[in-house]
Amino acid sequence: MVDQVTLARVNLFAVLRTLEGLPGHDEETRKIANGKREVIQFTVGGVGKARLAVGNGGIEFMPGGGGATINLWFPNAAALNAMFAGTGNPIPIKGLTKIAYLKGPFTTLTDRLTHYLRAKPELLKDAAYRRANAELSLYTAFYALSEIANNDPDGKVNAARMADGGILISTSGGPAVSVVATGGKLETKKGRAPENRARMVFASLDDAGALIRGELSAYMAIGTGQVALGGYTPIIDHMNKILGLVPRYLS
C-alpha cells in the first residue's frame, strides 16, 4: 500500500532533489541554470517545506523553509502527489507574476528530469543517456529509501531494526551515496560517510542502472558479483527490505 505522506516526502525530498544533478547531464537544463536565480519554495500541509534554487550556474535543493521568490502551497500530501502525477496544480501564494517561470523554465526542468528518469529502450542505447539515467536514478532511489524508512509503516519497522551506522552504496568509478542509520532513522548522504560500516558495491554504473530499472535481478547480481556486499551484514539485510519498497513509490 502506498502511504500518501510517504509518497509526498519521496516526491519532495527525493525526486525534486534529483534536479540538483541534472545540469551535469543536460544542456537544456544548464541553460536554465545559467539564467536569473529564482528560489521556489514548496510548502505541503502535513509534510514539510523545501526550496529549490535555480540559477547562477546551478540548481540547489534545500530542505526546510526560508527566503524564496516563488511560494507554492499544497494543502496536503495528496495535492503535491497530484502535481507530480500531472493531475493537479499548486496554489501560488507568492510570485504570482512569475507564473510564466513556472509554466516555462521550471516545467522544462521537470520534463527534462522525467526524460532521464523514465528511460525508454531506444534512449538507453546512448551511453551518455544511460549514464545520466543510472546516476540520477541511483540518487532518487536512495534518497527515496530514507523517506520510506522514516515514514512508511513497513519501512519504519525495518528501519527500527537497523543498528547505528552507515552503508556505502557505490559504483566502480562512478557516484556513491551513503545511507546512515541513527536510532532507527535513516539519512541519505551523497558520497562516503564516516559512519559507514557496510558496503554495497556495483561492478559498474550500468549494473546499478539496470538493477534500479528492474532489468537486473538483485539476487542474481549478488551471485554474479555485479553487486558485492560486505561488512556489517545485518544493516544491509534490513536496508534491502526497505529497498524492496522503493519501486512502490517510484513506479
Binding site: 535481478s217 538483485a218 539476487y219 542474481m220 549478488i222 551471485g223 558479483g225 558485492a228 556486499l229 560486505g230 551484514t233 544491509i236 539485510d237
Partner: peptide, 18 residues
Amino acid sequence: PGGVYGHLGPAEGCFMPI
C-alpha cells in the same frame, strides 16, 4: 528465482565476498 535461493544461495549474507 535468484539462481540459488534461500539459505544455500549467495544472497543470504553468508558468502562474502562471493
